[in-house]
Design a protein around this nucleic acid. Sequence first.
DNA 1: CCTGGAGTTGTCCTA
DNA 2: TTAGGACAACTCCAG
Length: 474
Amino acid sequence: MNPVTLMWFRQDLRLQDNPALTAAISDGHVLPIYILDDTNAGAWQLGAASRWWLHHSLQQLDKTLDHKLWLFQGDPQRIIRQLISEHGIGTVYWNRCYEPWRINRDKGIKAELEKAGVAVHSFNASLLSEPWMNLKQDDTPYKVFTPFYKKCIQQLSDIDPLKLDSDTLTLIPCQQKQGKIESLNLLPKIAWYKQMEKIWSPGEAGAHERLIRFIQSGIENYKTGRDFPSLNAVSRISPHLHFGEISPRQILANVAQATHGHQIEGQVEHYHRELAWREFSYSLLYHYPEITTQNMNRNFDRFPWMNNAKLLSIWQQGKTGYPIIDAGMRELWNTGYMHNRVRMIVASFLVKNLGIPWQRGAEWFWDCLLDADLANNSCSWQWVAGCGTDAAPYFRIFNPVTQSQKFDAKGEYIRAYVPELRNCPDKLIHDPGSADETELAKHGIRLGRDYPRPVVDLKESREAALNAYKSLKE
DNA sequence: CCTGGAGTTGTCCTA
DNA sequence: TTAGGACAACTCCAG
């Protein structure tokens, strides 16, 4: 009789290019499980949007596993211990995760299992190179992106994804009660996700469809197009990537194959850089786990933040009176996503114009983003706030009106998410707060009633931010 | 250890 | 209208 092996799915909800699964199959009959772990996650339990995604992603995974995915909720150590004793499992397989709390948890589980004579095999399924592999010559981690990127590219040799022949897959069928995704209660009571259902297709198949769409139209204009939120020039693959429905290796291989001979190396290179940013964030998180809450640059610990709860709430709701900000925040709320350019603008606004600590922004994104990812979220917020290692200089403060004129000149993005400005002419749409009120009235907009007045003065708040940063030096 | 060059994404003012 | 420089210094990284 074949031995039973345990395949523990985590952030790798796919069958193809899944090293742990491939290894588990070659070793015996596979018992595939997923565990919703709210026990060990602390402050980083899955946000509401991520739960919606996970629900559907698990549904898809279960389908491709012939409805044999076992689902659990609770502390994985206890659950796995019990499974091993009930099913005589000799080996456990998983792909590595890199969040500090998951690393600690997994270490504990591995230690217990090995002590009990159960073998544990873990693999890299979600990064191009392990965080402890891509180091400087002196074996310390990189703190600056560009040299990290150069090294990262040099090390890329083998990007051939693993192929899985599903005929070789022999799965242990689960009992009725362990097969119900509904029992995980991942969906909210109020169905605010209707919009998301229209836009997104969680799961492995959806991930590949999304990538194909990007390769067919998007990547050929990626380098410049990626800055314009109304264009479809970005991949929108981040939530798929976060849940491991597709691997960076698969992305690279598919992009390379599809663009070969198309003479768009410059565009492809820029896309590679974005994947490398993800690697960089994971490297930073691994080597400096405190970055999820603490300033990398500790000088910022003395920063005179305002902590205005009312302003935070106005920002969250997208009612700041600056249309590009409000459009971004409403895109986030309604679709679980925000275009990268707009993420930078709204983040700069929160931290520098509203004077609110980056952690508050990171928490909101964590709850609202379908692609909420601890490494990317923490590093990106620190970058914007200027307290990261390789951060934007402090005097680089985005002006939401200038950015809007530059990257959404015709207001298409704004109109898509701020319906009350739909009839506002291009000339006024970027900054209705300083427009002539009789002029606005002609287009049916009364400030303070149809659309909010600006919550802060850009010039004043910019000055205040610059002074606050200066005060760090004293 | 020393040295020189470089560092994702901007804005504003002046000439 | 447009182009160029100031904004600050500091740390990182490779040679």
